[in-house]
């Protein structure tokens, strides 16, 4: 497999804060690669450097074989970007926005019309293409931005939080488009997200990022396998006692209390459940509820960072801000 993106100790500092710390990753041709992590983890900074918007403090990277510092123009021609925040001209029609893009990226005039018709069809915006974009909904704007990123046939498409602030139906739609894009255009897609389900459903490989570093990188299923089994959640009247019972008497080392709930990761959850209940009853601990589920990426994140991705409330606020900004227009 050909490497489309390769970073070499890619680092970016903002004053004394290290946003991206000696990043070494490679993305292979044709895959959907996810950068997952809470806000402030360095995802957008990484993408900004790969898109030549930001210069690295040290280290470098290659995109489509071109150096992001020395051959920025070539890199720009090779990529398409859908930014986290809106970047359309809302006084223009959808079609005009697409024509502007085609011209800025040097798409031959003879091909512009047919390519634009094709991408409009892909994101189902043919009917609204000649309306001023002010009248578009947030989801429609997002779809047009996706379409725009494809007109110049990029080798790599960067999607920074492609579904942030969108309703569940629109998110589903956009996921569908992203998968179609990959199939139909044979392009490599790099996306950042803090939605676990998004990463799980879309990505071939996921890099979990925190504090500017990659803390885990693999396919979603392999990442989940590293947790070695199922997750048992227990609510009990005396969680501390039950926790020590489980870890010491039953030998289940992978257990912790999270928000008052005991969380145990075990290899064979189904057979373990009755034994845990039995042990609790014998020790006069009352179990309020108990549940068993397959591990998801949220658990993977928790496993590697010791906290949930949702714990950071500033991230949600950021999300609302982005929605608010979309709405203002």
């Amino acid at each position: 497999m050909r490497k489309v993106i390769e970073t070499f100790k890619l680092t970016r500092m903002f004053n004394r804060l290290t946003a991206v710390n000696q990043l070494d990753i490679s993305v292979e041709s044709g895959e959907i690669f996810g950068l997952l992590g809470p806000n402030g983890a360095g995802k957008t900074t990484t993408i900004s450097m790969l898109c030549t918007i930001l210069k690295p403090t040290s280290g470098t990277a290659k995109v489509n074989g071109f150096d992001i510092v020395k051959e920025a123009m070539q890199v720009r021609k090779s990529i398409g970007i859908v930014f986290q925040d809106p970047s359309i001209d809302d006084r223009m029609t959808g079609r005009e926005n697409l024509f502007m893009h085609a011209n800025l990226y040097g798409v031959p005039s003879s091909e512009q019309k047919s390519r634009i018709d094709r991408v409009l069809k892909l994101v189902e915006l043919e009917d609204r293409a000649d309306d001023i974009m002010r009248t578009y909904s947030g989801g429609m704007r997002r779809r047009l931005e996706l379409a725009r990123g494809l007109i110049h046939y990029p080798k790599v498409l960067f999607l920074d939080e492609p579904t942030l602030g969108l309703d569940p139906q629109t998110r589903d739609h956009i996921w569908m488009y992203i998968r179609e894009l990959k199939e139909a255009h044979d392009i490599t897609i790099v996306l950042t997200t803090h939605y676990m389900d998004e990463a799980d459903k879309l990505c071939d490989r996921i890099a979990i990022m925190d504090y500017g570093k990659i803390i885990a990188l693999d396919t979603p299923s392999k990442l989940k396998e590293t947790l070695e089994g199922d997750v048992v959640n227990i609510r009990a009247n005396n969680p501390e006692t039950l926790l020590s019972l489980v870890t010491e008497k039953m030998g289940l080392q992978n257990a912790r209390i999270n928000n008052g709930t005991i969380e145990i990761t075990v290899k064979n959850g189904k057979s373990m459940l009755p034994r845990i209940v039995e042990a609790a009853t014998q020790n006069n601990i009352f179990i309020e509820s108990i549940s068993l589920r397959e591990p998801n990426l949220e658990d993977v994140f928790l496993h590697y960072t010791g906290r949930t991705i949702r714990a950071d409330s500033s991230r949600e606020r950021h999300g609302f801000l982005a929605i608010a900004r979309r709405r203002i227009k």
């Binding site: 918007i53 809302d90 990226y105």
Partner: peptide
Amino acid sequence: WDKEFGFMKEILVAPI
């Protein structure tokens, strides 16, 4: 205006 509403980014990352 373009900076505020984002279109400036589209222009600035274009290969011109």
